[in-house]
């Protein structure tokens, strides 16, 4: 059974290739974070090694070991934990050493299964050296070897890598599909399911982890509170926040991006509410607050700030000084109407 959800096209493609025995030698799964790339890759590894047939049965010893990450022939290669710098979080890149190890292992016949499968998680993190090193193996892997690259954005991969793989695109999972899955198969209360299915922006993995783990939704409300405080607070406090966020950026880029994406959602929702399209909002559990807040701004202000957030995200991506970028962003936060009224006129 293929347990990746909401990707009928990708599953159909792989199933057909498996049935006709014409699997590509290397795949590139492209899709936003949490959309199911790794799940699909693991499913494919199970299908190739399953003791029952060409579908991943999920029951046999081989399938169970692969799912538990204990199978000797299925390896997931990602950034190694950074032990050198004394900070939590992974290293910045996938090193050439890891790729050489892959190549060496790929030269050997499978240890316990039928195929060796190498899953390269977040292939964007291959540096130029390791990507070039991988090219030869990627073009002509030994028989019984399958390489699967996972990437959120294939524009950040070397074109020579992309052209050597069969590209499979995973689309964001429709909110209704996620909601249904959460309610029917994971016994989540309908209210929560509705909220998570919208909040995850099509990344079903996030919705599932949020429903299993209280921490994710809690973190989100914390971030939203922070955001709501910021709009009413003084410039000093905003700058303090920018400094804090910039420090966090140096340790963990992705977490800051996450914060800004959350803000983007929030302001997009404000715009939707303002324009009377409340049924499309992401933060369904916050509708009242949104309505309340939206009264304080006019459309131009909201739009202007959305653009500011997008610009900030882009600049961070381009390695601009994070503190400056975030401070500029703080300066662009529009003041709400009531604040303006309260403030003594100059």
């Amino acid at each position: 059974m293929w347990n990746v959800i909401g990707q009928p096209k990708a599953v159909e493609l792989l199933r057909h290739s498996l049935e006709s025995g014409r699997l590509a030698h290397a795949y590139l799964f492209v899709g936003q974070p949490h959309v199911g790339k790794a799940t699909l890759a693991i499913n494919l590894a199970q299908a190739l090694n399953c003791e029952q047939g060409i579908e991943p049965c999920g029951q046999c010893r081989s399938c169970l070991r692969i799912a538990a990450g204990k199978h000797a022939d299925v390896q997931i290669i990602g950034r190694l934990p950074d032990t050198g710098s004394g900070e939590a979080g992974p290293k910045k890149e996938i090193s050439i050493g890891q790729i050489r190890e892959l190549q060496q292992a790929a030269g050997l016949r499978p240890y316990e299964g039928k195929h060796r499968v190498f899953i390269i998680d977040s292939a964007e993190h291959l540096n130029e050296e390791s990507a070039n090193c991988l090219l030869k193996t990627l073009e002509e892997p030994p028989p019984e070897v399958l390489i699967i690259l996972l990437a959120a954005n294939d524009a950040r991969l070397l074109p020579t890598i992309v052209s050597r793989c069969q590209r499979v695109e995973l689309l964001p999972v429709p909110a209704n599909t996620i909601e249904q899955e959460l309610v029917e198969h994971r016994q989540i209360e309908p209210d929560k399911a509705k909220a998570f299915s919208r909040l995850c922006r099509g990344g079903i993995g996030w919705a599932i982890s949020a429903s299993l783990n209280e921490r994710l939704p809690q973190e989100r409300s914390l971030r939203l509170n922070e955001l709501q405080e910021l709009v009413t607070t003084s410039l000093d406090k905003r700058f303090d926040f920018a400094t804090k966020l910039a420090a966090q950026f140096n340790k963990n880029r992705d977490s800051v991006e996450e914060v800004l994406r959350l803000w983007l959602d929030w302001w997009r929702d404000l715009l939707l509410v303002k324009e009377g399209c409340a049924e499309f909002i992401t933060n369904v559990d916050q509708e009242e607050t949104l309505v309340q807040h939206s009264e304080g701004y006019n459309v131009a202000e909201i739009r202007h700030f959305i653009e500011a957030i997008r610009a900030a995200l882009e600049q961070l991506e381009q390695n601009a000084n994070p503190r400056l970028v975030l401070e500029v962003l703080m300066l662009s936060i529009p003041n709400r109407e009531e604040e303006r009224i309260k403030r003594p006129s100059a």
């Binding site: 030269g107 016949r109 030994p142």
Partner: peptide
Amino acid sequence: PKKSQVIFRLRNVEMVSQLIQG
């Protein structure tokens, strides 16, 4: 039979090596 592994049997010791494909 799959020609994927070779075993060497010594006194009290066995060594299995994966074979290289190609």
